[in-house]
């Protein structure tokens, strides 16, 4: 369980995935990737990928929970899937905006 902060970078303990918190959900939560709790960038990875949650993360995709109170940006893709408090996160559908600069 951990408190998430906007701008915070976290990495998977069991694959290459790295995420940045774009919109933090208040309170303490269990954020996992590939079945293992996500860790700070300075921590040492350990454990193995759970094949049941290994659909992978994609670089540049945004991941949200059902009510979009949490938004993460995948800044490095990996083999594990993301979950919050035991529920899988989904990719946020991009809103097609025209290029403005």
């Amino acid at each position: 369980m951990r408190v998430l902060k906007a701008g915070q970078k976290l990495k998977s303990s069991v694959c290459d995935t790295q995420v940045m918190v774009i919109k933090p959900i208040p309170g303490e939560h269990d954020l996992r990737c590939g079945g293992a709790a996500m860790i700070d960038m300075a921590e040492t990875p350990s454990g193995t990928l759970d094949p049941a949650v290994a659909e992978g993360t994609l670089l540049g995709k945004r991941y949200v929970n059902a009510d979009e109170s949490l938004e993460l940006l995948c800044v490095k893709g990996g083999a594990g899937s993301l979950s919050l408090d035991g529920v899988a996160l989904a990719t946020k559908q991009p809103k097609a905006l025209p290029s403005s600069d």
Binding site: A6, G7, L59, G60, R62, P94, A96, L97, S100
Partner: peptide
């Protein structure tokens, strides 16, 4: 600040689009 510019880009541009 970094968070202003970063929020602008992530909020208005789709990565690798």
């Amino acid at each position: 600040r970094h968070e202003n510019l970063f929020s602008y880009i992530v909020g208005s541009v789709e990565f690798a689009a």
